[in-house]
Design a protein around this nucleic acid. Sequence first.
RNA 1: GCCACAGUAGCUCAGUGGUAGAGCACUCGAUUCGUAAUCGAGCGGUCGUCGGUUCAAUCCCGACCUGUGGCUCCA
Length: 645
Amino acid sequence: MTPETLQLVLPNGATRDVAAGTPARDVVASIGPGLLKAAIAVAVDGEVQDLMTPIRKGGAFVVLKSSDPRSLAILRHSGAHILATAVRRLRPDAKIGFGPAIDDGFYYDFEVETPFTPDDLAAFEAEMAKVAAEKFPFVRAEISHGEGEKVFADDPLKLERLAELGPGEVISTYTDGPFTDLCRGPHVPDTSYLQHFKLLSTAGAYWRGDEKRQMLQRIYATAFWKKDELDAHIHQMEEARRRDHRVVGKQLDLFMFHQFAPGAAFWTERGTTLVNTLHDYLRELHRDGYAEIKTPLLYNKGLWEISGHWGKYRENMFLVLDNETKEHDFSLKPMNCPSHYLMYSARKHSYRELPLRYNTYDVLHRNEVSGALSGLTRVRQFQQDDCHIFLMDSQIADEVKRLTGFIIGYYTTFGLTATLKFATRPETRIGTDEMWDRAEGALKAALEATGLPYELKAGDGAFYGPKIDFDVTDSIGRHWQLGTIQLDYAAPERFDLTYAGDDNTAHRPVVIHRAVSGSFERFIAILIEHFAGAFPVWLSPEQVRVLPIASDFAANAAEVTAKMRAAGIRAVMDNGNDTLNYRIREAEKMKVPYMAVIGKREAEAGTLAVRERGQGKKQDIIAVDDFIARVRDEIRTRALPKPAE
RNA sequence: GCCACAGUAGCUCAGUGGUAGAGCACUCGAUUCGUAAUCGAGCGGUCGUCGGUUCAAUCCCGACCUGUGGCUCCA
């Protein structure tokens, strides 16, 4: 039987007819030997495959060089194989798991008797360099199930994967020198393509992410085509470390943790100022149309039985022993919603009151598993800017539009940009299709009214209603899911919430759950990292540090400080015995936005020599009153800092 | 919760089977200074907790506590 002929279309429009099953390499070589040298892989009809793989279909034929972003994942996946090659040489007992490329590197999972040490990691890295230097070609083979069972007889994890592959699937292996892996590919042509890589860390990882399966040893690594790209990546990791809110929080004396209260922050005076300033801002934003309320922290389990948390969420709740019943009949609230429903249903409501917006900043507790805790971003005690809105179906569109604008406006104040995610009806859900049509339609209309780009996450909604999530990007490009707008048709049923309509009969309201910051703790962590601790003036715990050059000017400086404070500016005088240089250094380290220096000239003229944070020696001689007006203006407008360093 | 790593002065960290050190901070003294560290002296630690091994443990072993990285990215 003659092989089928496939037509490939090159980017310049030329065509090639090749026999099905021809390795891609041969086609590339026929175009030009120079091109073959630069080629990493090819894309046929948009599908990436490597040079070793036979061509099985026709279509657009594009040669991928290292400059093509798609080739990086190939390099990294090959890096994973090279890592496994090195590990197998040094630890022949290691059973291999999976080794994929990931967003910024790759990993490989191994099952070993004794876990890897940092010394092992260094040895593996050195061995990888050797494997690369040996320039082993990646050899692709297509095999049967039976052959695979022989090749991987000693690798139970691979056998498990092999057994899952159906009869119709091509089973392929890749061999580089001594190491053969069950692998779909694609790969670079040979091991020498891996030049710029680094092993980063080891970690335990459950086989297939399943906590019931065995724990494997994962090695994380990264690789790039060019040395300067690898260096830049390492630099980026260091930059993230420099901005780490746990480090900065200590340096700026904002918060602390203690082993007696794991997962709960202690806020210092400065940190509390920051928290309160955010609260004040939110309260200001909520002045119009929101009812701030406070509800208890501790509840009888009866409430959680109604809400459903007692059954599903109890493991994550802090239970409290009742001395009379000797039972854990009480729990700290892990969320505000049920308590807001209690408050709503405590009296009758008219349709004229709706939308009724309950807003709170109460403290919540969730008993996160110990391994999940991390700085301020994953805590057990936190505050949400939590809002529950009770409204009629017909009000959803307007309300969502209002909320979206509110949330985006809030982020904009901090220079954070958001992308929106629209999550629609999941497979298992309550309510009628008409109800979902209405709800999704209203959310969609509101989304489009913002003019912002959004991503559709079909089927990702809650079982009780669709939602919009706000995904925020910070100044170093990291993403955080913060705000949310969720429609809820289930809670009003469970809690039997009603309002009297204009027909004087009881109707069911809809509930919208809305959070802007998520939790304050996490939001502050994000702000710290976003600003690298150099907060805008309005947020800075200390806004101005007044520095008399010598104690002769202390009286004058104290007067100026008092005047600033009277004007609502958080000003502190530093009249230590230290030199001016020393005190400037201290103020810079604490990221105080303004340093106001007073010497003989300033004292006589009623001026200040103002130094701005991060701007070096440059000084601005300005009258005290003018400076006060300027700072007050910056606070009032919540001006963002000058472009970050 | 599970795996690895870590826990030494307020902070950052060094160190050793024979009960500990540096810099900064802090206190005191001197210095009164013009834009990122003035000089000197001093104070300060049950080496995370409990247990074991040992003549002897901060160091070796075990448990616990707390923290850090990770436990979804498919052969």
